[in-house]
Design a protein around this nucleic acid. Structure first.
Lengths: 157, 157
DNA sequence: GTCTGCATACTCGGATAAGAGCTGTCCGAGTAGCTTAGG
DNA sequence: CCTAAGCTACTCGGACAGCTCTTATCCGAGTATGCAGAC
């Protein structure tokens, strides 16, 4: 899995904490986490294309959440970075076997593919149940002063 | 995910069907599925190293299951091909943030990492519950003549 | 007929290239805010 | 003092290389089989 997923999730949680008043630039995030700014910017662009963030150019520009944190799931972020394709790709190798029906869609018929998809389904269900709002709340509960530190390192005033 | 995973699972199911009397060579599997023989052989080697298959060189040689099909899970096969590492790799970027505790293990402390691991856990649990024996039984139940066709294309007599 | 030695063909196994995708970098288009000159 | 034009600096956004990993291929070591010859 891309390293960008980890970065993107952390940035989303941070944006949920800093709020909508100010935008946070990729450079500021990069400084906070010690990451390559241009590459991080590339990852955040993917989130903009996916409709998770909005971007503002120019001074005092940067990124904001495009919708409420409770409406952004971990799966949304992963799909935005990695694409919507399943990890397991059924190439329908059964089609080449003797006695196979060429007109059959083995992507849904093959029992191996079915088992793999079942596993990915529960995986995605778990990720879909976890939102940025949940993560933010869990952080606030466990480390009460973390939001203050986050705002201090990402916002200007 | 590697394409070899799909190949390997199918080969294991086939070996469960053909039984332990005969070994099946990589070339025979490759012919059955229309795959590059040498590369498929490489994947099956990984299964041998993982203790899932045993290999026999020479004429009438090939691969056999190293243990009963009910003792081989889908997760075993995937780990053998892809490695045991989790898909999501926590790089502990929180360690670079102001106010972080350098002595803390953020791989287990970070809530983002925790959520991702929780999702992978249910994924692996699902794959661990599915064995080669289950797949073989499901195939026999749904397509009763499939085992005969499989034996005909993989065994010599 | 039976046994033994040998040549043969077949198998896995590891070492060696080609390609794709992730990672990282650089520069241009556009905008907000500050500066400065004029009224 | 107030206004407005221009300039500067900062932002995203997309285009351009480097590198790792997957994919693919080739050749060598080793073994069971079948054959030929001797007993």
């Amino acid at each position: 899995m891309n390293a960008g997923v980890e970065w993107a999730v952390h940035c989303c949680v941070d944006l949920a904490i800093t709020g909508q008043d100010q935008a946070v630039s990729a450079a500021r995030f990069a400084a906070r986490y010690g990451l390559p700014a241009a590459y991080l910017n590339k990852q955040l662009q993917a989130l903009v294309r996916a409709g998770i963030l909005t971007s503002t150019p120019g001074p005092r520009g940067g990124f904001r959440l495009a919708r409420r944190p409770s409406k952004i799931t971990l799966l949304d972020v992963i799909v935005a970075i990695e694409g919507a394709d399943d990890a397991f790709q059924c190439t329908q190798i059964l089609k080449a076997t003797p006695g196979a029906d060429p007109s059959l869609d083995y992507q849904s018929y093959c029992l191996v593919s079915k088992a793999m998809r079942a596993a990915e389904l529960v995986y995605r269900r778990e990720l879909k149940a976890q939102t940025i709002a949940h993560l933010k709340a869990a952080v606030e509960r466990r480390t009460p002063n973390a939001p203050t530190l986050t705002r201090r390192s990402l916002t200007v005033d």
